[in-house]
Nucleic acid binder design. Structure first.
Lengths: 326, 326
DNA sequence: TTGTATGCGTTATCAA
DNA sequence: TTGATAACGCATACAA
């Protein structure tokens, strides 16, 4: 590996001059510049980012902390983050925290000690003290970390309402919400949206709690349908729960959407390729990841900007688990 | 941020001594050691990994280059790589190359300039010169890069045979293989396995090429069934193609598995949660990622070990798109 | 317009 | 058993 010193020697100049042409800082004569560039080419010189980081106290590394890349919600988010980061010359470090505070703390240390320039966090715990006073910018994605930390999120409440209203409008008479885990912000808000819409319409409803997991939700839905066979509409807390609901119904010979209508949430790829394709409330996942990363990079570069929380609208994707009208 | 110098000052020793207790290298008196540790605690000192990397010319960074984390095959692989890396104190940099050689080269530069210690590559091109002579170890995952680069892969040929033999054994009389793109090693081998098994059984068969993509494959399968309505068994090049095949058949009112049996490949989560659940040839994805990472770390630490290619056996997961016997 | 010298925070060599 | 000090490769004051 050639160093800046090798280049300087070969070009017959000092390292300072080489550095100047490298960073386009300060004056340098056209001829010397050409000589330096020639030497760089000949030696195939590439600056050592580690040395640069040491001096600059900035590594152009961004940490992406998420619970589990294996969860189908996250790959698209990760892709967006990585795309934007790379575009701005940043590099993404992948961290699967499993929502484990200890593990998170550990990643945080590694990231800090590597002088990461910023963090995008999608974690499960609220009021997570790990992230305040961190002296690098942090953006919370799809989660609330702390009031001091800007968030990029979707309108879960509005989405919950929208889903519920669709079920009602499509003629359901007894609707259920199989909600995600309590204490998870988005699950709570979706539930609130459901309740609000149901109350407002004066429709009979029931709520049951599950996990964002297909097998567990199959069990939950199964019990739900045993207890309330009159249910003709389900708003699932997310697409995984929706898939579980559809499978359970189909296995019981309940026809979808004729006898039971189902609406999911998230708009993960699975929802579209499932058969029947699942009607769902789509979050603009890629856009959210993109926005979060752009915001983070702004925070990194011009520390003075006001970091504002941003809420994305959601969109209904009507597919085959609800009745098509008209 | 406290530095080693601050610690030294506070403990009343030299930086060399602090370094010694930090790295447990060289002798240091129990009392001084205690004093140093006390100072470290008090200052909440954390070593600066960037400085360490500069001196050691090793950053404990591992690059993971894959086409697209959004492709459902990769999250589990990425998870495995990250788990193992983290366990050994390495940090994973995520790179989506889209199979674009230019982009890959770019990532490679960034990684190299950051002194990454090794690379795990899952790319599409064979004989990719980007990776030879790279002076850091590289492991190819699920792909062949170059004869000089160790691979971790699954037995695609055997799996193709296995899938085909299952269809035959389950009573199919005219089978088709909707294969993945030619020039993609695994797709070729699965196809060879198909041909071999079909020839050996003397069964009527047909092969058509598609992409590892659901919408495109729906089109392909649709045309296939138009042309050869007598097909009663399909070996899909991967699970995405299998999903497409099942959907097309179901939409046409062809019952599965009674009239048409389908076998996929890969064992991605989607295959199991689809309804009907898809019979498939399961690759041990997590295990492969784990093995590749452990191999890479061995290559990083003891450069002298012989880097050997490793082929994992695949396993049949019989589910609902083939006829259950007895 | 260019060069010298210093520091970024470590580790490791050599003396003491 | 410990301490001074020279690297690691780069960027930047400051001089020239």
């Amino acid at each position: 590996m050639a160093t800046i010193r090798d280049v300087a020697k070969r070009a017959g100049v000092s390292v300072a001059t080489v550095s100047r042409v490298l960073n386009e800082t300060g004056y340098v004569h056209a001829d010397t510049k050409a000589a330096v560039i020639k030497a760089i080419k000949e030696l195939n010189y590439k600056p050592n980012y580690v040395a640069r980081s040491l001096y600059k106290k900035s590594s152009r590394l961004i940490g992406l902390i998420l619970p589990d890349i294996t969860n189908p919600f996250f790959p698209e988010l990760a892709r967006a983050v990585e795309d934007v980061a790379h575009q701005y010359g940043y590099t993404v470090v992948l961290c699967n925290s499993d929502g484990d505070l200890e593990k998170e703390k550990n990643y945080l240390d590694v990231l800090t000690q590597n002088h990461a320039d910023g963090l995008i966090v999608t974690t499960n715990r609220q009021n997570n003290m790990n992230y305040i006073d961190l002296d690098i910018p942090v953006v919370a994605l799809d989660r609330t970390l702390h009031e001091s930390i800007p968030e990029v999120r979707a309108d879960h409440y509005g989405g919950g309402k929208m889903a519920t209203e669709l079920l009602i409008q499509r003629g359901c008479t007894f609707i259920a919400h199989v909600r995600g885990p309590s204490q998870l912000g988005p699950a709570d808000e979706r539930c609130r949206g459901f309740v609000n819409a149901a109350e407002q319409a004066g429709i009979a409803y029931h709520i049951v709690e599950s996990q964002f997991d297909i097998p567990i939700s199959e069990q939950t839905v199964s019990e739900l349908l045993d207890t309330y066979p009159q249910i003709d509409g389900i708003f699932a807390g997310n697409d995984l729960i929706a898939v579980a609901a559809v499978k359970v119904a189909l296995k019981r010979g309940i026809s979808i959407p004729e006898e039971l209508q189902v609406v999911g949430f998230d708009g993960i790829p699975l929802s579209a390729c499932f058969y029947p394709a699942i009607t769902t409330i789509v979050q603009p996942i890629y856009e959210m990841g993109k926005w979060a990363t752009e915001l983070l990079i702004q925070l990194i570069t011009k520390k003075n900007i006001a970091a504002k929380t941003h809420c994305f609208p959601v969109k209904l994707a009507e597919r085959e688990t609800t009745k098509r009208m008209g």
